[in-house]
């Protein structure tokens, strides 16, 4: 994330002074960062460092105590989730909870029903099921294999994560926030999902990845933000960030316990 980029164009997302407390416990405190369009930002930090709370704050699932979130220069602080999505931010959940009773492709009908999709396609989206099957193919469901028609409850974890990604992509977002997409996946599965994310990046999508798998993350991230106890302790290129003593302390300290 070069300094020139930041000044040349207004950032897609600007978070300033963001603070959230849960009954005395500070989950996110005084957080500031900017994210230019088309970049992939990795957010890392030990467990309980406020990463998921940050996602919930940006996507409107919780309200901040103080601070401001701007998306494309527009203040979206405290908006309800559906309006945030309408602006073009979509997310995945760490705990995947699909509609278990429905076939995988039918799971995508709900996001495809969203007002945002209706607006972007001008109402001409054709058959939602067909669009859903295309999307599933994009995230690696084999075309014409039975797997897209299987009940979501019967899918293995790897496919559920892909389904979650497809749900977020179905909304045609400008900013996708992936909350620990790789957690619980094998190396091979991660390796097969990485190209999908790279492809999204090439399409010009801006991405925030909350991740514990640092190796895979650093390969694709443009910049990294490190959180600890809700505070930003480092920000910058991956290689530089890991050299910072504060980060080593936070990581090694927490892993050493």
């Amino acid at each position: 994330m070069g300094g020139r980029d930041m000044t040349a164009q207004a950032p897609l997302l600007r978070v300033s002074n963001l603070t959230k407390t849960f009954g005395g416990v500070t989950a996110v405190s005084n957080l500031d960062f900017e994210l230019p369009e088309g970049k992939l930002l990795g957010v890392i930090g030990p467990n309980g460092s406020g990463k998921t709370t940050l996602v919930n704050l940006i996507t409107g699932f919780t309200r901040p105590v103080a601070g401001r979130i701007e998306f494309r220069g527009r203040d979206v602080t405290g908006w309800p989730p559906h309006r945030v999505v309408g602006e073009g931010i979509s997310r995945t959940f760490q705990m995947v909870r699909p509609f278990y009773q429905l076939p995988a492709y039918k799971n995508l009908i709900v996001p495809l029903y969203s007002p945002r999709v209706k607006k972007l396609t001008g109402g001409r989206y054709g058959d939602r099921s067909a669009v859903a099957l295309d999307l599933l193919e994009e995230v690696g469901f084999e075309r014409d294999a039975y797997v897209s028609y299987k009940k979501a409850g019967a899918l293995p974890q790897g496919y559920l994560k892909r389904l979650e990604l497809a749900k977020a992509m179905a909304l045609r977002p400008d900013l996708i926030i992936l909350d620990e997409l790789f957690s619980g996946l094998s190396l091979a599965e991660v390796a097969s999902i990485v190209p999908i994310i790279e492809k999204l990046k090439h399409q010009g999508k801006t991405i925030i990845m909350i991740e514990h798998r640092l190796k895979e993350l650093f390969r694709i991230a443009d910049g990294v933000l490190v959180l600890n106890y809700g505070r930003k302790i480092a920000e910058g290129l991956a290689a530089e960030v890991m050299k910072s003593p504060a980060v080593r302390d936070a990581y090694l300290g927490s892993e050493g316990d």
Partner: peptide, 24 residues
């Protein structure tokens, strides 16, 4: 219909429907 799918989705998993940009 697809509308019904959204409705039953709300009772199954409201969080997921909200994150799909739908005002539940």
């Amino acid at each position: 219909s697809d509308y019904g799918l959204v409705i039953t989705g709300i009772s199954d998993n409201d969080r997921s429907v909200m994150s799909a940009g739908i005002n539940i």
